[in-house]
Write a protein that binds this DNA or RNA. Structure first.
Length: 655
RNA sequence: GCGCCCGUAGCUCAGCUGGAUAGAGCGACGGUUUCCGAAGCCGUAGGUCAGAGGUUCGAAUCCUCUCGGGCGUACCA
């Protein structure tokens, strides 16, 4: 419909009634729509607004327009129905035009709309030294989809994984490790000693003081420390102190200042925890076919590598992956946090309050933005301000977006306001792409947030594993051929299982809470990822059947006039709607718009499949019809495949 | 207390900047398979769009209030 509106509007504008009402194509286009029932017509023109302008009743206008109608190449007939002018289209022409457009573009629905524009997109951003929990799936999948969607519209998208690798929590972690596992401190001390004796030259590869520890174990230490802190408040100070030592150290490193042995030790423990975490995150990202690279300004070797790969060309450098730029980067690198603090002080925007340095963005009644805590350490806001400034300087974003849960709305309101107060007008182009909580069904049937305290944390990997296992069982049950090929079956199980979870996450508006119910996830019927993939796979099977039956692949010459079923017309319209859905999804940061469009297309396709059961889509007795239908099949396949890919779901050929 | 978000079928959700008789999926019930894949399809039942006012030719959609739910509310991130 959308892509046909131009043609329809153009034709209508030439008719006498429309000329008289001074309706040009641009004025007609937004008044076109689709009637609620198919019997009413293929398209509809609403007369309310032009009738008002002409000073007549909408019903009269519709009658008048219908009377002066003459058929054109696209619009065949028009009938007044109350205030509406219902139009019948030349379906063959409309379908042919639609199919031609799909076939013309390598990726149907892509546009150059965002050419020359940049989106800086913050997403995923897990905390190190903590296992990935299910809620990380949301920011990661929504962010990934948004990145792909924006790129399809011609944007340069700089994806940034704002790793939570800084903060007082790491002071506590270090204090905990020193307290419960003194051998780690010893090991770190030895490594640091060796380093200092070598006059500050870094060894090629230092051993890790954490050895083969797992993220889960680090988290246990952290939890135990917090537990004991309740009984012994002195531990809290110990944690703060360790963090202050770490922060001083990283700043000193950047300024090439003197470092201390304590700083060297804490730094090593922190760095090892970070490395170990990234290695674990990598497993999760690989499952989702997502790539994160370390931001190449972090170290020179990596930059050389990137230049060698020819990836540092503007635009291209940012496609297909995102960068890790942790919070720590802004503390260490050129003391970016320090600059923010200086600016806020000299401009008089920041005030001292209760021993801390803060900015009151929403009046004194609301909590302020915290720049320096009373213990002198930077806070969450400080590093977010520094990172925003760095990103804007480095990438000159047309838009800057943060894919972070809705519970942090206040934080981002404050952040953007603080930027504005500091004189950065581009704060207006920042947005918080918020999303709902992930809730789990409780024994009593109510929904509750996953939480560590209540022991409701679900480890992301477990969740994905379970989905993959379920798919593996279904494959065994339903597709023995595939199950026989172990490697292929495994690959499909992973794509379909992970795809099920991803689709479940993206199919509804992102602001909704996701109510996670295992029964729903493991049920593969209805509006689910496996259902979408199933339709995609079927379209592949039919194409295969066509090749075998007719020994040719020339479906692109198929004649649209052979597609006379209502179902075929319906499908063509849904396909024609796809580019508009994609554009809207891009503009609104809303992947669910694509998911919904795919659901409609897949459902229509499945009905059509059954509707053609008497002759089949590939009908040996009618080569012309088969060719036309397979032409449609391939358009469907292309759109479904493209849409699922944009949502970050892996395609499969068999399942 | 204050701020933000939300309330549509038993459950989970669509419904675009107001437009014709409010739509899907799940669940329930009843059909459907010599066939290109039944992870499918077809049908039935199920709604005072939380409630009350207002704006409008027209409101699930916009405004106000009430009720109900969620989230947030300075030294965690």
């Amino acid at each position: 419909m959308e892509i046909l509106k131009d043609k329809i509007a153009e034709e209508l504008a030439k008719l006498p009634g429309f000329v008289e009402a001074k309706l040009d194509p641009a004025a007609i286009r937004p008044l076109l729509g689709r009637p609620p029932k198919r019997e009413m017509g293929d398209a509809v023109f609403a007369c309310f607004i032009p009738a008002k302008n002409a000073g007549i009743k909408p019903n009269d206008m519709a009658v008048k327009l219908a009377a002066g109608f003459a058929r054109g190449a696209m619009v065949e007939s028009a009938a007044a129905a109350g205030p509406y002018l219902n139009l019948k289209l030349n379906r063959a022409a409309a379908i042919a035009a639609t199919l031609a457009m799909v076939e013309m573009q390598p990726n149907f629905g892509d546009s150059e709309d965002g050419k020359g524009k940049t989106l800086v997109l913050d997403f995923s951003s897990p905390n190190i030294a903590k296992p990935l929990a299910v809620h990380h799936l949301r920011t990661t999948m929504i962010g990934n989809a948004i990145k792909k969607i924006r790129e399809s519209q011609g944007w340069r998208v700089v994806g940034i994984n704002h790793l939570g690798d800084w903060g007082t929590g790491f002071g506590k972690l270090i204090a905990g490790l020193k307290k419960f596992k003194p051998e780690i401190e010893e090991s770190a001390r030895k490594i640091a000693d060796a380093h200092l004796k070598a006059h500050g030259m870094y060894a090629q590869k230092e051993p890790s003081p954490l050895g083969a520890m797992k993220v889960g174990e680090l988290n246990e230490v952290y939890k135990r420390f917090n537990e004991e802190m309740k009984a012994d408040p002195a531990l809290e100070d110990a944690g703060r102190k360790e963090f202050a030592v770490l922060e001083e150290h990283i700043v000193a490193l950047d300024k090439k200042g003197r470092t201390t042995i304590d700083g060297e030790i804490n730094f090593r423990i922190w760095r090892a925890a970070r490395e170990l975490s990234l290695a674990e995150f990598q497993r999760f990202y690989a499952l989702l076919h997502l790539k994160f690279e370390r931001w190449f300004v972090e170290d020179r070797d990596r930059r050389v590598f990137w230049e060698g790969q020819g990836r540092l060309k503007p635009d291209e450098a940012f496609r297909d992956h995102a960068f890790y730029v942790g919070e720590s980067f802004y503390v260490g690198r050129n003391d970016l946090c320090g600059k923010v603090i200086q600016d806020a002080k000299t401009s008089g925007v920041a005030k001292e309050s209760e021993g801390a340095l803060v900015i009151f963005t929403h009046g004194e009644k609301k909590p302020p933005v915290m720049l320096l805590k009373s213990d002198g350490a930077t806070a969450y806001h400080t590093r977010d301000l520094a990172s925003a400034l760095y990103r804007q300087r480095e990438f000159n974003g047309t838009e800057l977006a943060y894919v972070v849960g809705g519970e942090q709305k206040l934080h981002f309101d404050q952040l953007f306001k603080a930027l504005k107060m500091l004189g950065h007008e581009w704060a207006d182009r920042c947005s918080h792409v918020d999303f709902g909580l992930l809730l789990f069904k409780q024994q009593d049937g109510t929904w509750a947030k996953a939480s560590t305290r209540a022991g409701r944390v679900v480890i992301l990997e477990d969740l994905l594993d379970e989905a993959v296992n379920a798919v593996r069982e279904v494959i065994k049950e339903k597709n023995a051929d595939l199950a026989a090929d172990k490697d292929a079956a495994e690959q499909v199980a992973r794509a379909v299982g992970v795809g099920a979870v991803v689709f479940n996450d993206l199919k509804n508006g992102r602001r909704n809470d996701i109510k996670f119910d295992w029964d729903d996830i493991l049920n593969f019927s209805g509006e689910t990822g496996p259902y979408m993939l199933m339709q995609y796979v079927r379209m592949g099977s039919v194409t295969e059947k066509y090749r075998e039956t007719f020994k040719d692949q020339s479906w692109e010459s198929g004649d649209a006039a052979k597609l006379t079923l209502d179902a075929e017309w319906g499908i063509a319209q849904l396909i024609a709607d796809f580019p508009a859905a994609l554009a809207r999804a891009s503009k609104e940061y809303e992947p669910s718009i694509i998911a919904k469009a795919l659901i409609d297309l897949a459902a229509a396709t499945s009905s059509w499949w059954t509707a053609t059961r008497d002759t089949r889509i590939v009908n040996e007795a009618d080569a012309e019809q088969s060719r036309a239908r397979v032409r449609l099949v391939n358009a469907i396949r292309k759109v479904l495949g493209r849409g699922l890919t944009l949502l970050g779901i892996q395609l499969v050929e068999k399942m």
